[in-house]
Design a protein around this nucleic acid. Structure first.
Length: 501
RNA sequence: UCCCCGAUAGCUCAAUCGGCAGAGCGAGCGGCUGUUAACCGCUAGGUUCUAGGUUCGAAUCCUAGUCGGGGAGCCA
């Protein structure tokens, strides 16, 4: 009777005979020795099987086990520098649970369409495994942070009778013959709850029917929304800052190796310390029109053009190698690198095409417009840490945001822009607590007043200054992991025109 | 809603000016006693997205459509 172990605990079993329950991640075999890289959900372990009297009974059948075959493998745990991870299993027995055939995801590169259709299998790949582990930690830290800071969890409804935000982005569903909408935010409900519990938060999926096919958009994404009674705009910003630092620290603490594996620059994350930068929208607008912004983009253009020339040279060289008559191995590597370089070239070309437009947008930025994606990128790249942009023009923002009493053209809101151009990860505000002002805004925006009767009650009975924010889990994960596309930050992405699997 | 790009073997990609449909991986078989995306040999594998058109001849050119990728607007 041997111990059943998991790969993450092998270190504790050095010298022991243990059984691993897992799947074949990769395998290499010769006539007399086979290396099976086993994946068991907790990690990877190289299992070495030498042909001998002991293994004769199963060696020939198992040496060529196909990728993703399920197996129980028993052996002695030994330390070996040649093994990935430093430990390996000297196999004494193998029990095939299920022999797989023709597993579609191979160790070679695949296209994104193919991988998304096989999302249910793509999970098993190392990169995806790391990302979803980090996601689980981020979600855990979100809950832990708010629970430990005296926030009360309030679950808000998914079926909502009216719009929380722009009504063009609502998913309409039939509710016993009545049209209702999938929630875009739980905010109005947590506002009600914070008057009962002082500090509350909701955490769940939200739905937006935005017709956006970009690397930053999902139609179903997860958002945490804390709401605090007796809070000023400054209090809410302080809370957001502390919270974001806490999430970053936790991910650094628990996932440093995974972040490095994903290619994330860990030093950049280590710089995420309080205080973050705080600028007003008006100042941001000035920055966009400033010589610094222009210089940044112009330098960017030069850098991108140099990169493009470099890539052209590289691609030419790689193609020559790939088509030459060198060793097959070298040709393969060159061909794979050429594909990667071509992808990067296409991306750089697109960026170069966009820069003049971005320059124009920034230089011609007028007070009153909302900040666009490229504007946010410029602002965040002019800073080395996350930036809070506050006090946006009233007419560009939602009706519930508190009017600045000192300047009624703006509201007391903020966005938090992640550094390195990852864009907006938080939106928040102080909420309008005066019934009269709120009613005027609802009427001005032609919103259905009846639907908001209950919400207006909050201003009739013990209305106090309060505020909160919403943090998008997937966008935060993109930033933390350095992901290029949001679809990798959620187990099963829901995007415009995509709902399988 | 708008703009740009793409679709060739199971996968990733080639195919020069419009002239015989190719390679690697994966799969199958064989070989190899320490591999790290293993290696070596052999085998099988094609309605070139769809429908029209131009042409002696179309993967390649034209028109329309479908699907996918990226971006704008909008947003977390």
């Amino acid at each position: 009777m041997t111990t059943i172990s998991t790969i993450d605990k092998l270190r504790e079993h050095l010298g022991d005979t243990v059984t691993l329950q897992g799947w074949v991640h990769q395998s290499r075999a010769s006539g007399k020795v086979a290396f099976i890289l086993v994946r068991d959900g907790t990690g990877l372990c190289q299992c070495v099987m030498e042909k001998s009297d002991q293994t004769a009974g199963f060696f020939d059948e198992t040496r060529r086990l196909a990728q993703e075959s399920a197996l129980e493998v028993t052996g002695v745990v030994v330390a070996d520098a040649r093994a990935p991870g430093g430990f390996e299993l000297q196999v004494t027995n193998v029990c095939v649970v299920h022999a797989a055939r023709d597993y579609p995801i191979t160790p070679k590169p695949h296209g994104i369409e193919f991988l998304m259709k096989l999302r249910h299998l793509w999970f098993r790949s190392q990169r995806q495994w790391h990302i979803l582990r980090i996601r689980a930690t981020v979600v855990d830290e979100i809950r832990r942070y708010f629970n430990d800071h005296d926030y009360v969890l309030i679950d808000t409804p998914i079926f909502a009778p009216a719009a929380g935000e722009g009504s063009q982005t609502l998913f309409k569903v039939d509710y016993f013959g009545e049209p209702v909408y999938l929630a875009q935010t739980g905010q109005l409900y947590v506002e009600a709850a914070c008057m009962a519990h002082r500090k509350v938060y909701c955490f769940g999926p939200t739905f937006r029917a935005e017709k956006s096919k970009t690397r930053r958009h999902l139609t179903e994404f997860w958002m945490v929304e804390p709401e605090i009674a007796y809070a000023s705009l400054g209090d809410v910003i302080d809370a957001a800052e502390d919270f974001v630092c806490s999430v970053v620290q936790r991910v650094l603490r628990d996932h440093r190796p995974q972040l490095i594996e994903l290619g994330r620059n860990v030093e950049e994350l280590e710089r995420i310390q309080k205080p973050f930068h705080r600028i007003t929208y008006t100042r941001a607008a000035e920055m966009l029109r400033s010589p610094q912004a222009k210089a940044l983009l112009e330098q960017d253009l030069v850098a991108k053009q140099e990169r493009l020339a470099e890539l052209d040279r590289r691609i030419e060289k790689l193609e020559a190698v790939a088509k030459g008559d060198g060793k097959q191995w070298d040709k393969d590597v060159a061909a794979a690198e050429a594909i990667e370089a071509r992808e990067e070239r296409a991306e750089v070309q697109e960026q170069i095409r966009n820069i003049p437009h971005h320059l124009e947008l920034a230089a011609g930025f007028e007070w009153g417009s909302d900040l666009g994606g490229s504007d946010e990128t410029i602002i965040s790249r002019l800073h080395d840490k996350p930036v809070f942009v506050t006090h946006y023009p009233k007419h560009a923002k939602a009706f519930y945001m508190r009017e600045d009493r000192a300047d009624e053209r703006v509201v007391e809101n903020f966005d938090l822009l992640a550094p390195q151009g990852f864009g907006e990860i938080i939106g928040g505000s102080a909420r309008e607590e005066e019934l009269g002002r709120l009613l005027a805004r609802i009427r001005h925006d032609h919103l259905p007043e009846d639907d908001y009767e209950w919400y207006l009650d909050l201003r009739r009975y013990g209305s106090v200054p309060h505020g909160g924010f919403g943090l998008g889990v997937e966008r935060t994960l993109c930033w933390l992991c350095g992901l290029k596309h949001i679809r990798e930050a959620i187990p099963f992405a829901r995007m415009m025109g995509k709902i399988y699997p």
